[in-house]
Design a binder for these strands. Structure first.
Lengths: 341, 341
DNA sequence: TTGTAGGCGTTATCAA
DNA sequence: TTGATAACGCCTACAA
């Protein structure tokens, strides 16, 4: 079986006995074409089932109408919400989306970056991997004046735009809430400190302790991949401590829930013995018992804003932004896991 | 700031004083070019920071090296696992991915289909929306000999390949398990029956009842969007029944968990009063108390297999498949929510 | 083993 | 308002 012959503007022009130039203009809604002619052309295109060839077009206009997205992994609630938000905008604006996962590895991230570069995406949306320690691999984009935006997992830089939440403030408020519940020995589970998100949360956490004259205990700080299993592992470590903390603030919900379940299994009462709080407001927080106190992180909105900002930048043909970073609002959500009073 | 001049094979050819044909061949690893020449060309390309222009290439070879994916919504655990699986293969094989969401609407699905068509994807991976009642909108692909594969939410057809699980069997086994727990009045929560997945589960459910001489009660069948809120709604309906069921089998985990939590809130004991079971094996099933009995649905594997099969078909340049459908294995996972004995 | 040249489908410049 | 034509960057007969 052979495929159907592809219909081009040449076919339309031939059938109508006019030039391809006019056809092209009509198809692009150029004003300089008589309404009557345009109508005929559009009808013919329709009846011939014509589809514009984006490659020929891209070749000419040097725009690909696609946006690249590089993220650590797609299958977390937060990340898939972001993607969903991004997609909701790109679809409307007529942009395609090329998505790739770094799986938290710098090599993958670099490889993905190269692929995006060869594919000549019009812009790039990136959430950095755990391992990423510098951002040299985005230089080619900057040199070509292609806008790059970091979201969530950002990087301290003046060359690209960062879209994030105020992690420090959110962590501060959350910690303060725990302190107000009379907790004195608060543990923290964190992720890769190379990443601002986690580092800032740690800073906010420490600041709240200090401001309330509480000591930061090194043995109450745990660092891991922030998944459920490692959360359970932290629980086992905590159970072995001579003195257990009376509160735990985990840098994401998955890990915190994993920890919570394991503690419960060992007979620890939440929140009476240990108050707990996570971060993200994943659906899981409303399923676990007790429901988990957390910070609402607006993933979908972040996707929407990232995509919209990037597309604006593409349209204005400049890779630089007025702002250096955009901060989204978060909200502390207090649930039973931390309510002692 | 203006962007750097783009380097092409012409530049390489000029610098080396050879023809672009040779350069092109070297870049494509053609055997008919002297090793020495090839080496020089590759080095020059490297030092010039050359990137092949995929649009010029696509224009010539009529392959885009991109795969389209149309799904209802990305932000469910199952779907993001599938995407993750797809991406893991496409990246290796050098294909880009264009993802779009139908949001369960047929208009969106059709619009997305058209976009994919204009973008001339080399192949299409589709999970149908709730509303989709026919698949005429994929005809253009078939006519152009572009392979289309339906996964999960499939459609009874001979024209395209279906990749799915044996929903009927899985539902049958699950129902049988509930019956073995001595449940006599089993309710079922289902989704859009236009979709094979849900219809087949219902059929399997009914078959198990019949084979065990249990009656199917119309008032024990609930149909909704299968999210948590609607699950809670079902719970409220059930609480109002003169005689409550003694087991509930929900067609997905989200909805079943929503229902379970609401029943618990009303004082219903799970599994003593009502045994419960879901479908998918989302992480949430291991968080809810009691842990939810479910069917393991291998989303990542399904993504991997779908992508691999599609790419093979693309490589063989034929849109037809030997097989009409591929069935993946599932596994019944029994947890406390249904263990009465 | 290498080179010449035509063409893929568009857009854009210039002229009519 | 329309038309002729030259790119855009690449691949691939065909010729050398």
């Amino acid at each position: 079986m052979t495929s159907e012959k592809e219909v081009t503007i040449n076919d339309i022009a031939a059938k109508l006995g006019i030039s391809i130039a006019t056809v092209s203009r009509a198809l692009n809604d150029d004003t300089a074409v008589r309404p009557n002619t345009k109508k005929k052309i559009l009808e013919m295109a329709e009846s011939l089932n014509y589809r514009t060839n984006n490659f020929a077009k891209s070749l000419r206009v040097k725009q690909t109408k696609t946006i690249g997205v590089i993220i650590p992994k797609i299958n977390s609630h937060f990340m898939s919400s972001v993607i969903s938000g991004i997609e909701s905008i790109t679809t409307i604006e007529g942009y395609g989306l090329i998505i790739s996962q770094s799986a938290e590895s710098i090599e993958n991230e670099i490889r993905n970056t190269k692929t995006m570069f060869s594919n000549r995406v019009d812009g790039l949306l990136v959430s950095l991997s755990y391992e990423t320690a510098n951002i040299h691999h985005f230089e080619p984009f900057r040199k070509k004046n292609t806008p790059v935006i970091f979201f969530d997992r950002t990087f301290e830089t003046n060359d690209y735009l960062n879209i994030q939440i105020d992690n420090r403030k959110a962590a501060y408020k959350l910690t303060e809430h725990l302190i107000q519940q009379n907790c004195k020995r608060i543990a923290h589970i964190t992720g890769a400190l190379k990443r601002d998100v986690y580092n800032e949360r740690l800073i906010g956490f420490k600041a709240a302790l200090k401001d309330h004259k509480l000591k930061f205990h090194e043995e109450y700080l745990f660092s891991n991949k922030l998944n459920m299993d490692e959360g359970a592992e932290v629980a086992r470590k905590i159970l072995r401590l001579k003195q257990m903390p009376d509160a735990i603030f985990g840098a994401n919900d998955d890990c915190t829930v994993g920890c919570l379940l394991e503690l419960k299994k060992a007979g620890v009462k939440i929140p009476e013995d240990i108050a707990m709080a996570g971060f993200n407001n994943d659906p899981i927080t409303k399923v676990v018992e007790p429901n988990l106190t957390t910070v609402n992180y607006p993933g979908f909105d972040m996707g929407v804003i990232s995509a919209r900002t990037l597309i604006n930048s593409i349209k204005e043909k400049k890779a630089s932004f007025q702002e250096n970073s955009i901060i989204l609002n978060t909200e502390l959500i207090i649930r039973e896991s931390s309510r002692k009073t």
